[in-house]
Amino acid sequence: MRTRAICLATGLALLLGVTFIAGDARAEHLIVSVSNHRVTVTPNYSGEELVLFGSIERERDTPVPRSGYDLVVTVSGPRVDMVTRRKERWFGIWVNADSRQFLNVPAYLAIFANRPLDKIATPDILRRQQLGLNNVLLTQRVGPDYADVVASDPFRRAFIRLRTDLGLYQENTSAVTFLTPTLFRTGIPLPAEVPTGTYTVGIKLLADGALIAKTETAFEIVKVGFEQFVATTARQHGLLYGVATACMGLMAGWMASIVFRRD
C-alpha cells in the first residue's frame, strides 16, 4: 500500500511537472495505442506479442530537438508478493538458508527503449524516473524494515535475473523503433507463463536527457476456458475440487478394471 501511495504521489507530481513544462516551452504530447486491450490466454496459449503504436504530437512551431526524441516504455503486470531464497551448504547438502521478501512487486516487468538507457539520460534522472530494471522500485522486507536496496544487492540481482530467465522481466534498449521522427512502435512479448491481471504501460518521452512528456495506457490479460475454471475452483472450493478429483481417479481406475478385465 505504501509503495502505491508513493507511486501515486510521484505520478501526480510528474503530471503537474509535465503540464508545467508543456505550458512553458515545449508542447509535445503522446498519443499511444496497444494492438489489443484484452489478451485471452487459452489452454494452448504459447506466448504472444502485443504491439504498441504511438505518435509524438507537436505544436507547429516546436522544433525537433537536435539529438532527436528518446522513448522509454515500462510495462508492469499485476502486483504480487514474492520471496527469494538463497541456498547454502549445510552438512554437505544444499539447503534454503537466507531469504528476502519482495512486497507488491510487478509479476511482469518489461522496459523498452530506443537506445541504451545510459545514453538517454543521466543516472540521476534514470533513478528518479525509475527507468530500467536497475532503477525500478522493488520493495523488500528485511526484518521489520521496508525498503528498496541498491541495485547491486545480491538478492535483488538474483530476483531480477530469475524473473528475466522466465521471460517475465526484461529490458530491451533497442525494441522501440521510430518509423518517422515522431511515429514509433514497440513489441511487447508476453511469454506462455504470463500472469493474469491488469497491465499498465507507462510511456516516457525524453529529449536531451530530460523528461518532456509522458502518458499511460493499460491492457488486461485474462485466462478463459476450462483451465481458468479449474484454477478458480481449486482456489475457492478446495474441498469440493479435491472430492471431484478423487472421484475422477476412482472412475478412471474402475473403467480400467472393466476395460482390461481378464478374469
Binding site: 504480487v80 514474492m82 541456498k87 507488491n104 530476483f159 530469475l162 524473473r163
Partner: peptide, 16 residues
Amino acid sequence: GIRPADLYTVRETTGG
C-alpha cells in the same frame, strides 16, 4: 550434494 546451478529461487507467496 552438488552445488546447484543457481543458489537463488523465487516463489510467489500471495496473489498480491
